[in-house]
Simulated scan of single mutants.
Amino acid sequence: MHGPDDAPVVVLLHPLVTHSALWLPQLPAWTTRFQVVCVDLPGHGHSPVLPDVTTLSQYAAEVRHVLDALGVDRAALVGLSLGGMVAQAFALAWPERTQALVLAHTSARTESTIRDLWSSRLQQAADEGMAAQVPAILGRWFPPDFAASAPMTLQWVAEQIASTPFDGYAAAIGAIQRLDHLDQLHGITAPTLVVAGERDAAASPALARLMSDRLPHATLTMLPGAGHIGNVQLPLAFTETVGAFLVQSLDSPASP
Rank of each mutant, 00 (worst) to 15 (best):
A170W: 08
P143H: 11
L12Q: 06
I176S: 01
Q177V: 04
A172M: 09
Y169F: 15
A226P: 13
T241I: 06
P253G: 12
P224E: 15
A148E: 13
G225F: 09
M130G: 03
A104R: 14
A132C: 03
R109W: 13
A226M: 11
M152L: 14
A148D: 12
G197T: 09
L234V: 06
G139H: 12
V78C: 07
G168L: 12
S255L: 12
W30R: 01
M211Q: 14
L101G: 03
L234H: 13
Q155A: 05
A126K: 08
D52V: 00
S252E: 09
R74F: 02
G45A: 00
E198Q: 13
L56M: 14
L246S: 03
M130L: 12
G79F: 09
S119A: 04
S107H: 12
L13A: 11
G197M: 04
R64N: 08
F166A: 12
H46T: 06
T54I: 15
W141G: 04
A206W: 03
L67V: 03
D6Y: 07
A21H: 12
L101R: 11
G3Y: 09
P25R: 15
P151F: 10
G43P: 11
E111S: 06
T32D: 00
M222H: 05
R140P: 05
T32Y: 09
G187D: 09
G83W: 10
V63G: 05
Q123G: 03
T189H: 10
R74M: 06
A69I: 03
L77F: 14
D52E: 15
G71I: 14
R74T: 07
S81T: 14
V86E: 02
V9A: 01
R121L: 02
F166W: 10
S255V: 14
P95R: 00
D116W: 07
P42L: 03
